[in-house]
Structure formats: structure tokens, C-alpha cells
């Protein structure tokens, strides 16, 4: 690993502050590959990036790593704290460990890959992002998800897809319970194609798209009706 890493421009967070790190990574002329060492759970690592650069975070990240990312490709070699890749617009964030709650919250685009498990509210209010989780997701995942795709290779916790809008959810394992207005859908050819593409893009080869189930909005809460009041 050290051979590959030696080609990177390096920033050591034992020597540099988060402000210094982000200022460098956000600068207009930034290019190439970067290695961030000793992250040690610091918050807001590599947020607000706009350039198509590659960044390896060599350890654990705190809150909001890769927040609002545009075009950059991040790999976190440990676990990530709450709100990883929140409001991401484009690019990619890959977490080799687990992700805490609200991974990919409100993200509009790009690809978020979580190699381990994700906590509660994974993909909350997602607005177009694709999220692929190799493990399982916690309760209330894809809560109020508006668009995009959430792929869960393991199991999903309680109230999956509660108050869902137009996002798609694919789960290979069990779903503990579905949230209000979320229902299982027939997997269409288009769904299957999207799922295959996402698994491939995420580098997940051990699971076949045919073994997933598809969930979406029943659209019963789109316009208020008193007979559905108990669902709110």
C-alpha cells in the first residue's frame, strides 16, 4: 500500500488543521491524488470540494466527511461518522468500514458506497444520489427519500422508506418493517438494469441482482385524505 500511497500529495492531520486541509483541497487549481493521514475522527474532512481529485482518508472520519461533494472521489479507509457525504452533488464517496447515521442525507447526486453497515436514517431525504451498502442499514432508512436509489445487500431495519417519494429501494436480505406509504413493488426490467449497474459500479460482484426485492412509494400520502390520517 505504501508504494501506491507514495504517489499521493500528502496532508497529515496531526500537523495541519481541518481549515488548512480544506483550503488546499478546495483551491481552484487543485489536481491529482491526495492522502490524508491521521484523520483520527475529525469532523468536516474534505467538505465542499469542487474538483475531480482523488482523496484517500487513511483512518476514521468524524461528522460530515465529504459533505456537499462535487466531482471529487473520496475513499475513507475506516469508519465514517454521521452525515457522511451529506448533500453530495456528484463524484463519489466510498467507506471501507461502517457509516454512522444519516449517511448520504439529502444528497442530490454521485455514488456513495458503504462497505460495512450503515446506521439509522441512511439516505434520509435523498434527492437523486445512488447509495450502495454492502452490509445492513438501520431504522428509518430512506425516510422521505425523494429520488435516487438505495441498494442494501444485507438487511434493513424498522420503518424502511417511511413517507417515501420517488426514490427506489433495493434490499437483498430481510426488511424488519416498512414505513408509512412504502410498499414492495414488482422488479421491472428497468429496475433490474439500474440495480445491476449500481452493483457493478460499486464493485460488488458476490450478489446477484435477481436476489433483491424492490420497494417504492405507494403514493397514498401524496394528497391528504382524512381516511389516511393514521398513517401520518
Amino acid at each position: 500500500m505504501s508504494a501506491t500511497l507514495s504517489n499521493h500529495q500528502a496532508i497529515d492531520l496531526r500537523e495541519s488543521t481541518i481549515r488548512e486541509l480544506n483550503a488546499v483541497l478546495q483551491s481552484e487549481d487543485v489536481t491529482g491524488s491526495w492522502l490524508v493521514s491521521h484523520p483520527e475522527g475529525r469532523h468536516s474532512i474534505a467538505v465542499g470540494l469542487t474538483a475531480p481529485i482523488d482523496i484517500i482518508i487513511d483512518g476514521q472520519a468524524g461528522y460530515y466527511a465529504g459533505g456537499m461533494n462535487q466531482h471529487a472521489n473520496l475513499v475513507i479507509k475506516g469508519n465514517a461518522g454521521p452525515g457522511v457525504a451529506e448533500n453530495m452533488m456528484s463524484g463519489s464517496v466510498r467507506i471501507e468500514g461502517n457509516a454512522s447515521m444519516a449517511a448520504g442525507a439529502t444528497a442530490h447526486g454521485g455514488l456513495l458506497v458503504i462497505e460495512g453497515d450503515a446506521g439509522a436514517r441512511c439516505g434520509i431525504s435523498m434527492k437523486g444520489v445512488n447509495i450502495v451498502v454492502r452490509g445492513s442499514v438501520g431504522h428509518m432508512s430512506a425516510f422521505m427519500a425523494q429520488s435516487g436509489n438505495l441498494v442494501v445487500c444485507g438487511d434493513a431495519g424498522d420503518a424502511l422508506g417511511d413517507s417515501l417519494y420517488e426514490a427506489r429501494i433495493f434490499v437483498r436480505g430481510t426488511v424488519k418493517s416498512l414505513g408509512a406509504d412504502c410498499e414492495e413493488k414488482d422488479m421491472s426490467a428497468e429496475d433490474l438494469q439500474i440495480l445491476r449497474g449500481l452493483l457493478e459500479e460499486a464493485g460488488i460482484t458476490e450478489y446477484s441482482a435477481e436476489h433483491f426485492r424492490c420497494y417504492g412509494s405507494a403514493r397514498r400520502l401524496y394528497n391528504f385524505h382524512v381516511d389516511n390520517a393514521a398513517a401520518y
Binding site: V47, G48, G62, Y64, G67, A105, I124, N223, F224
Partner: peptide, 30 residues
């Protein structure tokens, strides 16, 4: 559709999180 939107922020809860959120917004905007 009738838009229902959330009453809590999706990625922070409480004053300690808010401090981290504000710092993130500052980091994004220099």
C-alpha cells in the same frame, strides 16, 4: 402533491451537533 417537510434537520440533532454543522458550513464557504 401536498409537500410534507420535516421538522428536524436530517443530519444533526441538538446543540452539540449544531456546533459541528455550523463548522461544516463554515468550512464549505471558507
Amino acid at each position: 402533491i401536498d409537500q410534507r417537510s420535516a421538522c428536524r434537520h436530517p443530519d444533526w440533532t441538538g446543540p452539540d451537533d449544531l456546533e459541528i454543522k455550523i463548522e461544516e458550513l463554515r468550512e464549505i464557504t471558507g
